[in-house]
């Protein structure tokens, strides 16, 4: 019989992982415990989405959530879970790795798939910035795997008849960090995932004011503007929820138009499933052309306004 855990600081990902956890224990009739940063109500939800036991791990006010690690280590030594799925948020990845070191066990970060037959597990994850996929076998348990949101799907219908128990975990007496301030991020302003047309801004834009060339094209096409990581993180020309790639957003628009983006693997990872990829770059050997359906070799300062004009004409007609 196997014993599965899920740990998450976001409830949606917890519900998704619960469905996967139930699938993984199905043959053995094992139990599923959810460690959740949530309310009593969400604990009940977690039960109806597949948990047998819920242990609330509420966000501490004065210290970091990851400080629960020693408590989890103790719980794990007692309960001996076989597999621990952890929601792959930044907090989750930190907690998972610390837990793995304490339990001296394997941890697979951001796995895409996981199969388990009771004695061995097979997992897949991306490596080399998204250029390749690695298949990993683990025979040692516990096994920890982190999972990003939307990797698995939660049960469509909650089983409200399911019963379970809820308790609350306490923080350890001694913690290492004091949280002196939390500044919430301004609410997300853009939903790139639903935009049919996305224009990607890269370092080929020589100044911030040129971003408007991309905005005008996006507007003419009825779409949104996104960017590469350095545009958001180094230059701060666009907000961080707009950058595409392995450490940012993954999108599937009808058309992705990369302008002034070189096409390095970490960026391309985020547009792999776009229906059509278009690239504009002044370097005729830019790697982005190898992953594009259509491309124009040229200066984006000329090409983007020309595309805007052409789009307006087509839409106007």
């Amino acid at each position: 019989m196997s014993n599965l855990w899920i740990i998450s600081n976001t409830v949606e990902t917890a519900y998704e992982m619960l469905a996967k956890a139930r699938e993984l224990v199905s043959d053995s009739g094992g139990s599923v415990t959810a460690f959740l940063n949530g309310s009593e109500y969400q604990a009940q939800e977690a039960i109806s989405y597949g948990a047998d036991l819920v242990k609330l791990m509420r966000m501490p006010e004065k210290t970091a959530w990851e400080e629960y690690v020693p408590v989890l280590v103790q719980e794990a030594q007692g309960q001996k879970p076989d597999i621990i799925l952890v929601g792959a948020t930044r907090r989750g990845k930190d907690l998972a790795a610390q837990l793995a070191a304490h339990l001296d066990c394997p941890c697979v970060t951001e796995c895409k798939t996981i199969q388990y037959d009771g004695s061995k597990a097979i997992l897949k994850r991306m490596v080399y910035g998204g250029l390749a996929e690695k298949t990993i076998e683990c025979n040692e348990f516990p096994l920890i795997a982190t999972v990003t949101g939307r990797t698995f799907s939660k049960w469509e219908v909650k089983e409200t008849a399911r019963q379970g128990t809820v308790s609350t975990l306490a923080l350890p007496n001694v913690v290492k960090m004091q949280v002196v301030e939390r500044r919430p991020k301004p609410k997300e302003t853009v939903n790139l995932k639903d935009a049919p047309f996305v224009v990607g801004v890269g370092r080929g834009f020589s100044e911030a004011s040129d971003v408007k060339l991309a905005e005008e094209l996006a507007q003419a096409m009825g779409g949104e503007v996104a960017c590469s990581r350095p545009i958001a993180e180094d230059l701060h020309w666009l907000p961080e929820d707009r950058y595409i790639g392995i450490s940012g957003q993954v999108i599937k628009p009808d058309v992705y138009l990369a302008a002034g983006i070189s096409g390095q693997v970490q960026h391309v990872y985020g547009i792999r499933d776009a229906k059509t990829i278009v690239a504009v770059n002044k370097n005729e050997n830019a790697p982005i052309f190898q992953v594009a359906d259509y491309y124009i070799v040229g200066d984006l300062k000329e090409v983007l306004p020309a595309l805007t004009k052409a789009a307006q004409e087509v839409k106007g007609s």
Binding site: V108, I122, A132, E133, K134, T135, I136, E137, C138, E140
Partner: peptide, 8 residues
């Protein structure tokens, strides 16, 4: 702790 079966 883990064995690589394949990288493609």
């Amino acid at each position: 702790k883990q064995k690589t079966l394949d990288v493609s």
